[in-house]
Design a protein around this nucleic acid. Structure first.
Length: 372
RNA sequence: GGGUAGGUGCCCGAGUGGCUAAAGGGAGCAGACUGUAAAUCUGCCGUCGCGAGACUACGAUGGUUCGAAUCCGUCCCUGCCCA
């Protein structure tokens, strides 16, 4: 049976490493570079499926760890998999639980076999190994599933970083052995923290596995931007050229520009929705906060010319009013705007790449963003 | 009219002699957030001053005391109960 997955590298910018491509999945094609909104609990927070769809999102993320705890991945399987479960028929990607090894580090214990977690909500203990992560992700049934990795913190010692990386590689082997569903693509993840030789070694090792796409993990864990950029820049070109490259957990509009310039094709980040719930909205001139006094009587949309639902229908003053009254609609409107902003942003970058004007696009957008 | 419980900073509300410019919330004003334990967290929040500090403040007023939001007198106001 032919693989339902394919990736076509359509164009590489002549003056930078920026790439445009198309990734085919069982639930449709993804045009890269692409920003993927995060819906940890099988919902993009504060948004309905229609609203997510209206942002133009081509694919969304969900999380193995969270869905395993609630609702229970067997239940999702019983409903016919995550697409039917949440009534979303475009592609879905699930994270493996590897990020929770980092983010819930005080609630877990790592052994060679796997990781013992305590549920932050009820204290119950759960064990996830590479094999169990694969079983969970196969039950969920996303199009793209991620290797169960150990995401190291920043800063961390060379020994720690090396040990996490090597374990990630051994676990990767086990993930590939445990994965059986041909309709899912398993992406390996580069680790190695912030050490050049470890990143090089990790990229080499994971590239030796035959995969549909490859991810860079362990960034955006608190390190300064220039360090992040250095490691993305040196790591991305070490991954197979004719396969999509996914930079996990990134990022801001600036991060997208830098990532794309350095040859990244896929991004995901909680920022557009989390920051929306905290009152922030993206603009081409940087992030603003609707809570601030300056917007109290501002009749303009969040961003002039933006064609998201929030901007087409409401003023800053109105959204600020909703925010101050504690109306959840404020978070919804900001989430719609922020998500569409990043989706559009990656789409514009794609067009620029195809037109060989990415360099200009990068310079123009970056100078606007940093000016503030 | 009698009794009783009260009146604290923008609001709610602790505080019954010095450790009180006055707990804790809320509101307000800012900031953080990157494979979501997050609609969360942090800072500021009487006035003036960069600052040390000064000034003003716990219904009003008079007193006791080295010292009062806290104790006493009088007055004003509010809730509740009885007539």
């Amino acid at each position: 049976m032919a693989s339902p997955f394919a990736y076509e590298l359509e164009h590489v910018c002549k003056r930078s490493g920026a790439r445009a491509g198309t990734l085919t999945t069982p639930h449709g094609k993804i045009k890269t570079p692409i920003f993927m909104p995060v819906g940890t609990n099988s919902a993009v927070k504060t948004l309905t499926g229609d609203q997510v769809e209206a942002t133009g999102a081509q694919i969304i993320l969900a999380n193995s760890y969270h869905l395993y705890l609630r609702a229970g991945t067997k239940l999702i399987k019983q409903f016919g998999g995550i697409h039917k479960w949440m009534n979303w028929d475009r592609p879905v990607l699930t994270d493996s639980g590897g990020f929770q090894v980092f983010s819930l580090s005080h609630l877990r214990k790592i052994t060679e076999d796997g990781v013992e977690f305590r549920d932050p909500k009820d204290g119950s203990t759960h064990f996830i190994s590479p094999e169990i992560s694969m079983e969970i992700q196969q039950d969920i049934g996303a199009d793209i599933i991620m290797a169960f990795d150990e995401c190291a913190p920043y800063p961390c010692s060379y020994e720690e970083a090396k040990s996490a990386m090597e374990r990630t590689h051994r676990w990767l082997e086990r993930c590939f052995r445990a994965k059986t569903n041909e309709n899912q693509a398993l992406f390996p993840i580069v680790q190695g923290a912030f050490y050049d030789d470890l990143r090089q070694e990790s990229a080499r090792v994971i590239s030796s596995f035959d995969a549909v796409g490859y991810a860079i993990g362990g960034v955006s864990v608190g390190e300064p931007t220039d360090i992040k950029n250095h490691f993305v820049k040196m790591t991305a070109p070490l991954l197979p050229e004719n396969k999509p490259r996914y930079l996990m957990g990134v990022g801001t509009p600036e991060d997208l520009l830098d990532g794309i310039k350095n040859g990244i094709d896929m991004f995901d980040c909680v920022l557009p929705t989390r920051n929306a719930r905290h009152g922030a909205f993206f603009t081409p001139e940087g992030s603003r906060n609707i809570k601030t006094q300056q917007f109290y009587d501002d009749p303009r949309p969040l961003v002039e010319g933006c064609d998201c639902y929030a901007c087409k229908n409401h003023s800053r003053a109105y959204i600020r009013h909703l925010w101050r009254c504690g109306e959840s609609t404020a978070a919804t409107l900001l989430s719609i705007h922020n998500t569409k902003f990043l989706v559009d942003f990656s789409q514009k970058a794609r067009e620029a790449i195809l037109n060989d004007t990415f360099e200009e696009f990068y310079n123009e957008q970056m100078s606007r963003l940093v000016k503030k």
